[in-house]
Design a protein around this nucleic acid. Structure first.
Lengths: 205, 205
DNA sequence: GCATGCGTATGATCGCGATCACACGCCCTT
DNA sequence: AAGGGCGTGTGATCGCGATCATACGCATGC
């Protein structure tokens, strides 16, 4: 297990204490493999390294309810608080998942103050980010969501995208077509300047 | 300060240790009063008792970017991790806010293991809930959002609403008109039964 | 060389939800 | 009793984004 490389991919793993690292296990999942089932005992904490894993439930008509999609980072963290899972976890593509034994994870949180602070910070940042995303998704128009994203995730009205536009569109709750159109219209109106992955909102002159 | 009543209103306050309770201060806010400004030192942890408080930033064109709306519960928790605020907090109506000194709050988290567990649980549940809400808001159709809400927040395809429909519509990212129409169509199709505040999804026969 | 897949990008059409308008019942205050 | 405010509904219209279609550039693989 090369933690150097893992930490480069995911900064959040940096604070995992050495003790706990030794207990970690990296599992490979095939497409549509199941990580855990509803009702299973919570014995593991997961972090998605690559691919995509979803938390899903089936509703009365048999269709899928997606509770969470993860393409990287800790996953189903909330389950640490409960004894059994309330949903299934399924990989939607070939994926790699880091697995920590839940007992030792909890113990490390109790014993290691640094790790605990890092974990509290992780959860708090996650909450902040998700709250902002919910506010963003409640905006109706595409250009409003774009402006909100740049203002809340960037600095001083500028941001450098770290993902393809298509993925960004999905994060904004838009189709890629709607995103492209809104971007070019914002450019035409002079409200936005685009240089590659660098987007900057402009003051209305 | 009557903690009995406060805890009834907000279960999350139950785990606050006695020591910290003594330090709490309840502040009343007028409409559009400011709780803190961008750049202020983080010296307080807030919980909204009544009314509504928003975290906002102003963008380049001067319009408001809402990062979070809170109508109850802890507020700007993520700021505990940083030294200064990155946004303003403004009351949108007459409100009451519980204020804890941040130093003592942090100290209590370090010293009191029960409080810490409760706080970790609180953050984790919040993350779970927000992730589900983001997934829900990414659904396009009103009936899909309704079904997703009932399945993810209720039990066995049933839920009892604890808020008026209008507020529910806002939480679903819909206008109340769209919600009413979707509800009556789901009823007509036999996919949903409604008795007052009790909603139940039905198996397609 | 060619085929395949994917991100990027733009045009045309359609459908759903937003918006505007209106009505009713209920609670509260005066 | 009168009036206002608010939640609850329903009807009509409109606009924006979804959807379908198409095209191009650029990788990768055979």
């Amino acid at each position: 297990m090369n933690w150097q490389i893992l930490i480069e991919q995911q900064a959040g793993l940096a604070h995992i204490p050495a003790e706990l690292r030794k207990q970690a296990d990296c599992r490979s999942l095939d497409r549509s493999a199941t990580l855990f089932h509803i009702g299973d005992l919570v014995q593991t904490v997961f972090s998605v390294i690559s691919g995509e894993v979803r938390l899903v439930r089936r509703d009365m008509s048999g269709s899928e309810i997606v509770l969470q999609r993860s393409r990287g980072g800790f996953f189903a963290e909330a389950s640490l608080g409960s004894a059994r899972y309330h949903c299934d976890a399924v990989a939607t593509e070939v994926s790699k998942v880091l697995c920590f034994p839940a007992r030792q994870f909890r113990a490390a949180l109790d014993d290691d103050a640094d790790f605990r602070d890092a974990w509290l910070g992780h959860l708090a940042r996650e909450v902040r980010k998700l709250r902002a995303q919910c506010e963003r998704l409640n905006l109706r128009r595409a250009d409003e969501r774009i402006a909100h994203f740049i203002e809340s995730e960037g600095t001083d009205g500028s941001i450098t995208l770290n993902q393809p536009r298509k993925a960004w569109a999905a994060e904004l709750g838009l189709t890629h077509e709607a995103l492209y159109r809104a971007l070019s219209q914002l450019q035409r109106n002079g409200r936005l300047s685009i240089q590659g992955q660098q987007l900057s909102l402009k003051k209305p002159s």
